[in-house]
Simulated scan of single mutants.
Amino acid sequence: MRIYLDNAATSFPKAPGVKEAVCAFMESVGASPGRSAHALSIESGRILYQARRGLADLLGLEDCKRVFFTHNATMAINTLLQGFLRANDVVVTTQMEHNALMRPLNALKTRLNLEIRQIPCAQDGTLDLESARELLKGAKLLACAHINNVSGAMIPLEELSALARNEGVAFLLDGAQSVGCVDMRNVMEQVDFLALSAHKGLLSPMGVGALLVGDSVAFKELEPLIYGGTGSASEEEIQPLFLPDRFESGTPNMHGIAGLCAGLEWIESKGVREIHAHELDLRAHLTEGLQDIKGVRFYKVANPANATLSLSFENKSISEVAMRLDREFGICVRAGLHCNPATHRILGSFAQGGSVRLSAGVFNTHEEIQSCLAALSAIAKS
């Protein structure tokens, strides 16, 4: 039996009922994307609405038509950046951002002559909020991850939101690591845009993401990333203006969305606060045990929000440690830079190729954490 500690990449196993929902859709509804008038299409449309409504309720969005489905969080981020930013705009980020944000920003920097400002970060993940206040002056967009995918550190969302609002700066939150893991019932009152993926904290299939646009945001300022058929206003050869069709061209991944519905239902029944508390308990177990293992360094953060943390060994490469955990102990982790070289530069782990990342999830147990600690201790002594 393997121990899976790579939930920051993709959660496993999925929520109870997800597999059954995907299979049921394929067997009974799967011939229709929900754009016809027959019974199968109507059922598909119901599932699509249910998923849209479920995400809106989870994240505090009143108008569920402002939930736009994408393939993943990266596509959602690109939809916002490429549709919202204009020539010579100023964008503020932090010094510890994922490539899902930094790569499209750097591509647009050349194309649009953007100015990108970065809020300084300490090694423990804390942000310099006084610097943030100054950097936001004259900016159009603040964009940052809610929870860091390398260290599990969470940004001070309320403080950043207040600073952005004071300067009239729009706020894009990357919720890939936080949605479904921490209580975010009022998050859309604090940010203007939120990007997410279904396959992480929402415990649902890969290939589904979403961009949420705040109830008070004038969506006409945002251009679609993709244009094409929507199953609506088909007499026109221009993109419709109404929501959500304006931002959802092409056939949606209805199999994945059916699974997302099941994932959302399970999370609601379980309770996000209970999920969050369990993950923090697992993190505490890990950090306490790691302190007793000589030759292992784990990177501490000031405001940990989940069970994701990174470590390294004094005399062993991270790739060797990850390989031995897998082959000798059946423990699945991820070694490397985790698509986030910026964080590893701040942590001081970039030169060694990154870190070994342990990311427990809601279905991990304390027995599994203890087994992982025993394996790490054995590797450290050998």
Rank of each mutant, 00 (worst) to 15 (best):
Lys200Asn: 03
Gly175Trp: 00
Asn7Thr: 11
Glu265Lys: 10
Glu27Val: 10
His285Val: 07
Ser312Met: 07
Glu97His: 05
Asp183Met: 11
Val29Lys: 02
Lys14Phe: 11
Pro240Gln: 02
Thr94Asp: 01
Asp245Tyr: 10
Arg53Ser: 15
Cys64Tyr: 09
Thr93His: 02
Ser310Glu: 07
Ala351Trp: 07
Tyr299His: 08
Ile47Ser: 07
Ala335Asn: 03
Glu223Asp: 10
His146Arg: 02
Asn340Trp: 01
Leu129Gln: 09
Lys65Gln: 14
Ser161Pro: 04
Cys23Trp: 09
Val301Asp: 00
His146Phe: 07
Cys64Pro: 15
Gly34Cys: 05
Gln82Asn: 12
Leu80Lys: 01
Leu157Arg: 12
Lys220Arg: 14
Leu211Asp: 04
Ala218Gln: 14
Asn88Met: 15
Lys200Tyr: 06
Leu142Phe: 10
Leu211Tyr: 01
Asn306Gly: 10
Val29Arg: 03
Tyr4Asp: 05
Ala145Glu: 03
Val91His: 00
Glu20Gln: 12
Leu202Arg: 03
Lys294His: 14
Phe219Gly: 04
Asp245Asn: 15
Asp57Ser: 06
Pro341Lys: 12
Tyr299Thr: 02
Cys181Pro: 00
Thr10Ile: 12
Cys339Asn: 15
Ile226Cys: 04
Met75Pro: 00
Arg111Asp: 04
Lys220Pro: 06
Val150Arg: 00
Arg133Gly: 11
Gln352Trp: 03
Ala342Arg: 01
Pro341Arg: 06
Glu320Cys: 14
Pro120Tyr: 12
Asp57Arg: 11
Gly250Ser: 14
Ser359Val: 08
Glu130His: 06
Asp128Glu: 07
Ala176Asp: 06
Ala284Gly: 05
